[in-house]
Design a protein around this nucleic acid. Structure first.
Length: 260
DNA sequence: ATGGTTGAAGATCAA
């Protein structure tokens, strides 16, 4: 079973690229982020025609997350991250596909820092950590997939000097990510590529970042122990990023064996 | 070199 995460940066602007990706890569599940559209403008028909069922949590203009599954509709288990009824951002949706509980996460960017956006990022992170703890307690296969807006280590950023003041590499951002992982999650991509120091999933549109491989690793798939045991492979799929009118992110995927 | 690009909304913000 192939499970991917893909920040599409506008699902309607990216629809041809997304459909192309579904047809070529044939993921069983794709977690999408940055839909940048309201629920009623989600391109449900086109995605259905491509053979995928979907659940989504949209928001006009910004944010928005979805989970697509080939040949079936994901069974939604959570919409919005618990812990703050006043949080109006659409950044979390969770559903079950093929016996696996799957979360699509769009963690706040947090720039500029310091400031209220960075504070929001860290508070949102605490709520994610609490919810992840509850998911681990279920002792079932879970994947937390999405755009975490965190480079876990220096080597996950193309240049630390260029990124020094960015929210994505701050010690507080990394400490929160570490506390999450150390609950017992496996960072699947890093697990498969322990020595790759140019393992990126995002390249800024500006300043020729893509052609000179000035990237960041910020899209992650975290596996519960029950799923980590079944991890076969994890890769960055660079092809979509090379195309015209691409997202600034590219898909990252894991291959999971059938339950034994 | 304090720039550069993109999407969605709407003449700016978020990334």
């Amino acid at each position: 079973m192939k499970i991917a995460t893909f920040n599409v940066n506008g699902i309607n602007a990216r629809l041809p690229r997304l459909l192309e990706y579904l047809a070529e890569a044939k993921p069983d599940v794709v977690c999408l982020q940055e839909l940048k559209t309201a629920d009623e403008s989600f391109p449900e028909a086109a995605i259905s025609d491509a053979g995928y069922g979907a659940v989504w949590h949209g928001q006009k203009g910004f944010n928005g997350v979805a989970i697509l599954a080939r040949g079936e509709t994901p069974v939604e288990t959570q919409r919005g991250l618990p812990g703050d009824p006043d949080d109006s951002h659409s950044r979390y949706i969770e559903a079950i596909v093929g016996g696996i509980r799957i979360a699509s996460i769009y963690l706040p960017n947090g720039n500029p820092q310091p400031g209220p956006k960075f504070d929001y990022k860290l508070k949102w992170f605490e709520r994610l950590i609490e919810h992840a703890r509850a998911l681990l307690a279920l002792e079932v296969p879970v994947v937390l997939a999405g755009d975490y807006n965190v480079c876990p280590e220096d080597r996950d950023a193309w240049s630390m000097s260029a990124m020094a003041n960015d929210a994505l590499v701050q010690p507080d951002s990394r400490a929160a990510f570490r506390r999450l992982v150390f609950q017992g999650w496996t960072d699947a991509l890093r697990q498969i590529h322990p020595h790759d120091d140019h393992l990126y999933s995002f390249w800024d549109y500006q300043a020729g970042c893509w052609p000179r491989n000035a990237g960041l690793r910020i899209d992650h798939l975290l596996l519960s122990p029950q799923l980590a045991d079944r991890l076969v492979d994890a890769q960055v799929d660079r092809q979509p990023r090379a195309r015209e009118k691409s997202s600034d992110h590219t898909p990252v995927w894991v291959e999971i064996t059938a339950q034994h």
